[in-house]
């Protein structure tokens, strides 16, 4: 992105919308079973809120919201959540991603309800991977070059822990 100082108008309009975008992303994730949406869309919308911050407040500010080490860890973690649910179903004696096997109960209502929990878990895994991957794509591709106004301190960027 071009790295000049962002206009105060953009900043003051964009900033207050961020928590609402993030809340909406979680709504899209949770509401995916009853309406359009799900982990993928929710993940993209959540990532968009951080991208909006990076565009209006500058690359380092946006990167500071979810630091590099944190998103790096989240990318495979989401895949692990997804396949982990599948593995749990295997341990329960069912098929891979056969969610009825998440319970030992034989009550058909309980077994049916396990589909709900299983779907929520894998959607959450999808959202974790999509959010962190989209943010990684954006921040790696738009990284400021030497000579841009926002010089980066490497220690500051790598972070390790989320802030």
């Amino acid at each position: 992105m071009s790295h000049h100082t962002p206009s105060p108008i953009l900043r003051y309009v964009a900033r207050p919308t961020v928590p609402f975008i993030q809340l909406y992303a979680l709504y899209v994730l949770g509401h995916g079973e009853d309406g359009p949406g799900g982990g993928f869309q929710g993940g993209v919308i959540f990532a968009a809120s951080i991208v909006l911050l990076a565009l209006t407040e500058g690359w380092p500010y946006g990167r500071g919201q979810l630091k590099r080490g944190f998103t790096d860890a989240l990318m495979p973690f989401g895949c692990l959540v997804y396949s982990g649910v599948g593995a749990l179903c295997l341990l329960g004696g069912g098929a891979f991603l056969g969610y009825e096997a998440l319970t030992t109960s034989l009550d058909p209502h309980v077994r049916n309800h396990m589909h709900h929990y299983g779907l929520m878990a894998i959607e959450a895994g999808v959202m974790i991977t999509v959010t962190s991957s989209m943010l990684t794509l954006f921040f790696e591709m738009s990284r400021p070059e030497p000579g841009d106004p926002w010089e980066l301190d490497e220690e500051d960027e790598a972070g390790g822990q989320h802030g």
Binding site: G32, D34, G38, G86, L97, Y99, L119
Partner: peptide
Amino acid sequence: VGPANIITSVLGDYRGY
């Protein structure tokens, strides 16, 4: 499967792989 949104059932359950 259960959910009212059939797309979610297809994506997450029938075609979970």
